[in-house]
């Protein structure tokens, strides 16, 4: 089985985000870029499938810091790594890159395309259904378990409230991974060093093929705060206040 897994580098939204001067993007100068969490799980699922039944895993990365993440992917077990060129300093829109991923899936004779179910930049739509529809392959998003039995995939999808639905479908297919069957593995420094020799392929992007798209006019930060009370940043004071708040509401055990 040939698996193509997509790795998107996105701004670390756990950190502080600032708006760029043009008001239409975020200021990328001081941002940390990291692998989209869900894509990390997609990579893990790809490697788990390879270990379970044999597969050739091709990782394609897009965005800032792709070399670093592709070395990591190779260290974790990807057989081939490719950097998809993209417009510099631009957000990664799934709508824009879907045609490139679909073309690469065909070029690599992929049986399965894996990507994270979402990214924090996919405001114009999610990657798995775009790629699935462009290839006319079935797609399932929100998976937390993928088992391959030859060309038949058994896929479990999270539906909320802990409900899980299991589907069967045949390859070729596109899956949007929520959670890998096992938590993503760590790789040792020595493996990373070894993998740093893996040659990184380059791929030029395809045109999205969409004539019309929505447009971001401005970005803004949400108005902060609601009506909550700020207890400050001193742990001792905060603890004192919380104990009395909880006690007043009968919620502390003391």
């Amino acid at each position: 089985m040939n698996i193509l897994v997509v790795l998107r580098m996105i701004p670390d939204s756990a950190g502080e985000l600032q708006l760029a001067e043009d008001g239409r993007s975020i200021d990328r100068e001081w941002l940390d870029f990291q692998l989209n969490d869900f894509d990390d799980h997609a990579l893990e699922e790809a490697i788990l499938l390879k270990e379970a039944g044999g597969a050739k895993v091709t990782a394609v990365a897009v965005g800032e810091g792709t070399n670093r993440v592709l070395q990591m992917a190779a260290a974790r077990g990807a057989d081939e790594v490719v950097a998809l060129q993209a417009e510099e300093d631009a957000m990664i829109s799934s709508r824009e890159i879907a045609a490139s991923i679909a073309a690469m899936a065909r070029a690599k004779s992929a049986d399965l395309v894996l990507c994270g179910v979402q990214s924090s930049e996919d405001v114009f739509g999610q990657l798995a259904p775009y790629v699935g529809a462009l290839l006319d392959w079935p797609h399932v998003s929100g998976t937390n378990r993928i088992v391959a039995n030859g060309a038949v995939l058994r896929v479990t999808q999270e539906r909320g409230a802990g409900v899980a639905v299991t589907y069967e479908l045949a390859t070729p297919a596109v899956l949007g991974v929520q959670t890998a069957s096992k938590a993503p593995r760590y790789v040792s420094g020595s493996k990373l060093r070894e993998a740093s020799k893996t040659p990184i392929g380059r791929a030029a992007p395809e045109s999205s093929g969409f004539e019309r798209s929505a447009e971001i006019i401005t970005l803004r930060l949400p108005v902060q705060g609601g009506s909550g009370e700020n207890l400050g940043g001193d742990a001792e004071t905060v603890a004192d206040r919380l104990v009395s708040i909880l006690a007043a509401k009968g919620l502390a055990r003391n």
Binding site: D122, V123, Q126, L127, Y130, R159
Partner: peptide, 20 residues
């Protein structure tokens, strides 16, 4: 869970813009 698969599928096949 359903909408995540449906919205972009329809967008890709119609070519219509999508905002999520």
């Amino acid at each position: 869970a359903n909408g995540l698969d449906v919205a972009a599928d329809i967008a890709a096949r119609t070519g219509w813009p999508l905002i999520s």
